[in-house]
Design a protein around this nucleic acid. Structure first.
Lengths: 202, 202
DNA sequence: GGCTTCATGTACCGAACGGTACATGGGGGT
DNA sequence: ACCCCCATGTACCGTTCGGTACATGAAGCC
């Protein structure tokens, strides 16, 4: 049976094309926003860029605000997916986890999404409700794999939490440095210096 | 002689009230933006908040874009002023400089300006020209006092630069953590942990 | 005292926006 | 074959925006 076979009485085919189309539109919207920013997004421009009329965006998302919610949520989901790559193998040393974290955040191909992350942070810090979910998991969610690696390496829970928080903060600060200056070599050198400080392997 | 006595032929009294009024308006604008954000600033709302008509903002700044330039510049100038407090005394240890840097950035009274900083960063990373000046000095300017303290403490120039870059990044990352979570105690603990790592005073 | 200059306000303009009303056309169910 | 549902488009509405035209009144200069 096809996915469209059993939709009859519900105004919205439950597992049908509508949700697919919605998901497809929001994916396109996240791409567009990662490339062009979220600050001055307009339904008309987004529609023109993705090949639909702005009317359809209203049709699928009800309101611009709800579309923004979906965009932020989807962008977050993408980040979670890359986060899950960090916590996969439990045998990793903290240094490995930190290097992995850095490598994936500093990847030039992800620069658009990282810029979007900082941009959404800026909006969230202003209390914009659609961006608020980013603040929730901003620290806790990313702390988890780092804390796990620290504890596995022998740290006490309190130590592990503080060390993980420092590591996350440093990686984020260096990421901002990288995005602002573009000085990949300089920032990489600083990251190596941090790893020496952090793990003591002089 | 008063400041208004000698303005005759120039369309703008050179040292006269016009520049004073301009400066006064831009200061009020920065305050307003630090409190309410820069993303959806409108001349009308800003005018209403500062007691002038939006017409006057155009009169003094020509265009909204130029007003934004002035706002960013003035906000930067305020940050420079607080930066200069860091590099005043040359006898400071790197730990002292780092603690001072942290204390002044994490001060709750400065939260509005710090939020504005991240917000402007987000715009600057998108290439908005009025925010671009922030990116210029984002790293270099703040590195200087840290590097100086490191060299004074005996580091080689290369070491000093890397260590300073790490310190600045960590402070910024923890600041974002603090603004997002509001967990002052937790972030302070992480900062102390970082200072232990950084300066080795176990 | 008359003239100019300038700060300031009111009223307006065109553009872009988010959102709505309505038309239309195609695909699936009976 | 008919019908209905729904995706999609076009045209429009009211609002807000940045920016402009013009009026007005006060202050300084001859």
């Amino acid at each position: 049976m096809t996915a469209t076979g059993d939709a009859r009485r519900a105004p919205v085919p439950p597992g049908g094309r509508r949700e697919d189309r919605r998901a497809q539109l929001v994916e396109a919207a996240v791409d567009h926003v990662a490339a062009h920013g979220i600050a001055d997004l307009s339904l008309r421009r987004l529609g023109a860029a993705t090949g639909v009329s702005h009317r359809m965006l209203i049709h699928y998302f009800g309101t611009k605000e709800q579309l923004l919610v979906e965009i932020v949520r989807t962008s977050e989901r993408r980040r979670r997916a890359s986060l899950s790559r960090l916590r996969a193998e439990p045998g990793r040393s903290p240094a490995d986890v930190a290097r992995l974290l850095w490598r994936q955040l500093a990847d030039p191909g992800a620069a658009g999404e990282e810029r979007l992350f900082f941009e959404i942070c800026g909006h969230a810090l202003r209390g914009r409700p659609e961006a608020a979910p980013v603040l929730e998991g901003l620290v806790e969610d990313w702390l988890e794999p780092l804390v796990a690696a620290e504890i596995e390496a022998g740290a006490t829970p309190a130590e592990a939490r503080n060390r993980a928080r420092v590591g996350l903060a440093t990686v984020r600060g260096l990421l901002l440095d990288l995005l602002a200056t573009g000085d990949r070599a300089g920032v990489d050198a600083a990251m190596e210096e941090f790893l020496r400080l952090y793990f003591g392997s002089e």
